[in-house]
Amino acid sequence: MTFPERFSNLPAYAFPRLRALLDHHTPGGDVVHMTIGEPKHAFPAWVTEVIAENAAGFNQYPNNDGTPDLRGAMADWVQRRYGVAMDPESQVMALNGTREGLYNAAMALCPEQKNGQRPAVLIPNPFYQVYMVATLSVAAEPVFVPATAATGHLPDYESLPADVLDRTAVAYICSPANPQGAVASRDYWTRLIRLAEKHDFRIFADECYSEIYRDAAPTGALSVAQELGADPERVVLFNSLSKRSNLPGLRAGLIAGGPETIRRVKQLRAYSGAPLPGPLQAAAAKVWADEAHVAENRALYQQKYAIADEVFAGLEGYMPPEAGFFLWLPVENGEQVALKLWQETGIRVLPGAYLAQGGAGENPGEGYIRVALVAPAEDTRKALVALRDCLY
């Protein structure tokens, strides 16, 4: 029996790697989980009531594209948030979480060839791992572009050779960035969109952390694309309720883009998609329509930004996150530090190298650890102080 080779060189996923690194060692204190970006704040209490009220929908196959109510709520949210009008029939679609959408969009939209060559897909490094697997699945070449302190923790796609850009089909970009918390400015989006127009590639804008920020709401790619008069098919937006509304288990994401983009994604998902159950779609529609809980949630994260700034004041290389809920802390070696923290304090963090790909012997995440600020404020303060005292 033979197996495909395209995934044979994949490293173990980040969290199995972490378990292999830590779990055969005894923790040095009460276990504190600061690894996974799983929100722990309360979601709106009325969500379960909406699901219960619509529970009869579990007896029906769900709408694969999203019910009219859900698509309308998502289109309304895009209009409120980004100032961009989207036709709920042809320009938005429900996803079973953004990871599924980021994968299936590549399957639906990446061509087999670009200018007669194997297509390239641009990926920030560090990156959300589905970008790489989606690229390999469509037989494209992943091009990992460092997103380091030198580049403002966002990838400098403009620095790539013209021959690479000319065969680029898709550029993934995450803003606010996971794990660094950097935010793409209006100027950054403008330059990226102009680059995409010059070399004719699509931008997959992963903006799932867009509602968790320190001061000003991050500029969205769709807003800038509209201002520039770009082709509506140029930018594809992905977002979800996981971080915005503390509902990672609801699996309620959205994709928004040009009519042809959404038509092709709908066509693929009609065959292969896993639609969101009807009662969950009803709840998602209500959640997208409500902003009060989002503001309350954001205030809790802003409180933890202040705690982190206080705890790490004066630490060389400390970068206060602009948005999102991770700290990207500089260390000498992320794996060694994660093991030291576990053995001496019981705190679990993620080595930055597990979120990046090495190239020419270098991994841009190696000198960092990712720390998730998802616990309550005082628990977060206690853990960050213990982390600081152990490492610095």
Score class of each variant (00 low, 15 high):
M1T: 12
S8N: 08
A12C: 01
F15T: 13
P16W: 02
T26M: 09
E53H: 10
F58R: 09
P62H: 01
N63E: 14
Q79T: 12
A85H: 14
P88Q: 07
C110Q: 03
N125C: 04
T135N: 06
L136F: 07
P142Y: 06
V145M: 12
A147H: 12
T148F: 03
G152P: 11
D156I: 12
D156H: 12
E158R: 03
D163L: 00
A169Y: 07
V170L: 15
P176C: 02
V183A: 06
S185G: 08
R186P: 02
H199K: 01
D200Q: 14
D206N: 14
E207Q: 15
S210R: 15
I212S: 07
R214N: 12
D215H: 09
G220T: 11
V224S: 11
V224P: 06
A225Q: 03
E227L: 04
L228A: 11
L228F: 08
E233F: 05
E233K: 01
L241M: 09
R244T: 12
G249F: 13
A252E: 08
A256Q: 05
G257L: 07
K266D: 07
L268N: 05
G273Y: 08
G278I: 00
P279K: 07
Q281K: 07
K286T: 12
K286I: 01
A289P: 03
A292Q: 13
L300M: 10
Q303L: 10
K304D: 05
P320Q: 02
L329A: 04
E332W: 01
K340W: 00
W342H: 11
E344W: 00
G346W: 09
R348M: 15
Y354H: 08
A356M: 04
E362R: 14
N363D: 08
P364L: 04
G365M: 12
G365T: 06
G365H: 06
G367P: 04
P376R: 08
D379F: 00
